[in-house]
Design a binder for these strands. Structure first.
Ligand SMILES: [Mn+2]
Ligand SMILES: [Mn+2]
Ligand SMILES: [Zn+2]
Ligand SMILES: [Zn+2]
Lengths: 137, 137
DNA sequence: AACACAAACGCAACATGGTTGCGTAAAAAA
DNA sequence: TTTTTTACGCAACCATGTTGCGTTTGTGTT
């Protein structure tokens, strides 16, 4: 977990107050954020375009990755070490809490190995669990 | 696979040309449909509101169920026999083709049994595979 | 320190997908 | 045939996310 400033420098992203706050926000939480949730929590911008564009930039640099969302919103969580600077590589499951509507990465759950026999060529496997998270259970 | 007219009668849904066509459309295909795809394929209405409301009605009656979509659109497929008239009950995986963007129900693939240890209460498991479908492979 | 350039911001306008309200039409029930 | 209820069709709306563009601000160079 590097300092926010180092990360921006390392990825050749300009250091702005908003981006510093955004990195710190992601680092502060085990869960994930939508653009709207970010807007609520961060004061240094109030413009959704700025938020969306920063999220896209961070995603491209493999700082964050998209996670499933209860309402099909775009939602991001911090990437883990598996991801290089260039390529995302995720092999964990996700959990959607139906009470608080948060999404969590479940790093401890391995994805099942599926061998389909019916002529589908499988390139990716996504496993999403739903229920109640520890805080809501 | 009952006749469309019987189904509408059985579920106390009024028999209209559009709904008959809609049921037949779902029965004709192993895959799934978005509102837009339905609008392209069915002539008896041209109003998206009619389509969305029919889909909601059919979903409530457990005739169809939502399936994941490559672009997070609302997409439906026919329910199988497991679903009663009142309750959906699905335990199959889904496959998203990244070439044709279609979604298929994979009835032959069983969902993995997940026992999470980290305090999450799991109520539902969703397994989505991605790749190329038989036609696109 | 001044300059130059590219990257990020902020505002407005737009796009898409889906929903709501309401008057009208038309099945189905009486 | 009359009444009742459901479905339709149009318009208006809403929510989420995107695009264009002029301005500002970091950052690296002189
Ligand atoms: Mn994740
Ligand atoms: Mn299915
Ligand atoms: Zn929760
Ligand atoms: Zn395909």
């Amino acid at each position: 977990m590097n300092k926010a400033e180092e990360i921006l420098a390392k990825y050749k992203l300009k250091k702005t107050n908003f981006r510093l706050e955004l990195i710190k926000l992601f680092q502060s939480s085990k869960s994930s954020f939508t653009a709207d949730e970010i807007n609520d929590k961060i004061k240094s911008t109030n413009d959704k375009v700025t938020i969306y564009r920063a999220l896209s930039a961070f995603e491209k640099k493999c700082l964050i990755h998209r996670v499933p969302d209860k309402s099909n919103l775009i939602r991001y969580a911090l990437c883990q070490k598996e991801c290089s600077k260039i390529h995302h590589k995720h092999n964990h499951a996700h959990f959607i809490c139906n009470v608080c509507a948060q999404t969590f990465c479940l790093d401890n759950i391995k994805l099942p190995q599926i061998n389909d026999t019916s002529g589908f060529k499988i390139n990716k496997t996504k496993l999403t669990l739903e229920g109640a998270c520890p805080s809501c259970y």
